Amino acid sequence: MEIDFKKYTDGLVPVVVQDKLTRNVLMLGFMNEEAVKQTLETRKVTFFSRKKGALWMKGEESGNTLNLVSLTSDCDNDTLLAEVIPDGPVCHKGSDTCWGEKNQPKFGFLSYLEDVIEERKNHPEMEGSYVASLFRKGVNKVAQKVGEEAVELVIESKDDNDLAFLNEAADLLFHTLILLQTKGFHLRDVDKTLRSRHKFNPSSE
């Protein structure tokens, strides 16, 4: 890995820190050559603190360390990306990130769809809403719909109609999202369960 430390007068390159699993940006720090060397050797992210004028391992006082998965430079070799597994909140103010955000996984359109479903759950009286009507009918009806969609997906998988198969897969996923919220859960809870089964090991990456 080549790093152009000489591009900056103070010899410090910016380091973007990203959670390996959630893909969320956690913080921004700076490293000199010694900080990079120590980070790679210890697998604990270490910065150069301008305030202290010395190396500073993130979490050395709070215990909220950043476990290094990978450290790479960008196309100009003047900015680093540190992929990490954080032990606890990253910001010194106690939040998950230095932007005050929750470090939760994001699922693109599925996250948006979850928000819509949750809105319908909070307003089951909403007329004309299919989702709200399911919430009104209760968990047994929602579970029944999931079962029906699962059977339809299996049937379509035996044919060669890709569009029909994808439509049934979408229906099953949609109703599963509703069932999750009927039971008080979200996709992030399923994500957490899957990650616990995988027993993710940063050193194996």
Rank of each mutant, 00 (worst) to 15 (best):
F135N: 00
L66N: 03
E156A: 12
D160C: 14
N67P: 09
A143C: 04
E101K: 13
K145A: 03
D162T: 08
I117F: 03
V84R: 05
K145S: 11
F47R: 03
K102V: 10
K137T: 05
A132T: 06
H123K: 15
F47E: 00
H92G: 09
V116S: 13
G147H: 00
Q144C: 12
S49M: 12
G53M: 05
G88Q: 07
T79V: 11
L81Q: 01
D76H: 11
P86E: 00
K58R: 00
P86I: 03
L163E: 11
F109H: 07
D76E: 13
F135E: 00
A82K: 00
N167G: 15
I155L: 15
G59S: 05
P89F: 04
G94Y: 05
L166W: 10
N67M: 10
I117C: 00
M126T: 15
K102T: 07
K102N: 07
G100K: 05
D162I: 09
K102G: 07
E83I: 11
E61W: 09
S129C: 14
T72S: 14
L80W: 01
D76Y: 14
D160M: 09
R50N: 09
N64S: 03
E156K: 10
G147A: 02
S129P: 13
V116N: 14
G100I: 06
N77A: 15
G128C: 02
V139Y: 08
E149C: 02
E119I: 12
G147L: 03
F48S: 01
S157E: 07
D115Y: 11
R50C: 05
H92L: 11
C75F: 09
S49P: 04
C91L: 01
N67F: 10
K141V: 06
G100R: 04
G59E: 01
E152A: 00
G59P: 00
V151C: 11
Q144W: 08
K58E: 00
N161A: 10
N77P: 07
N161D: 09
M57W: 07
G100M: 07
E125M: 06
V151M: 12
S49R: 05
G128R: 09
A82S: 07
K121W: 12
V139W: 09
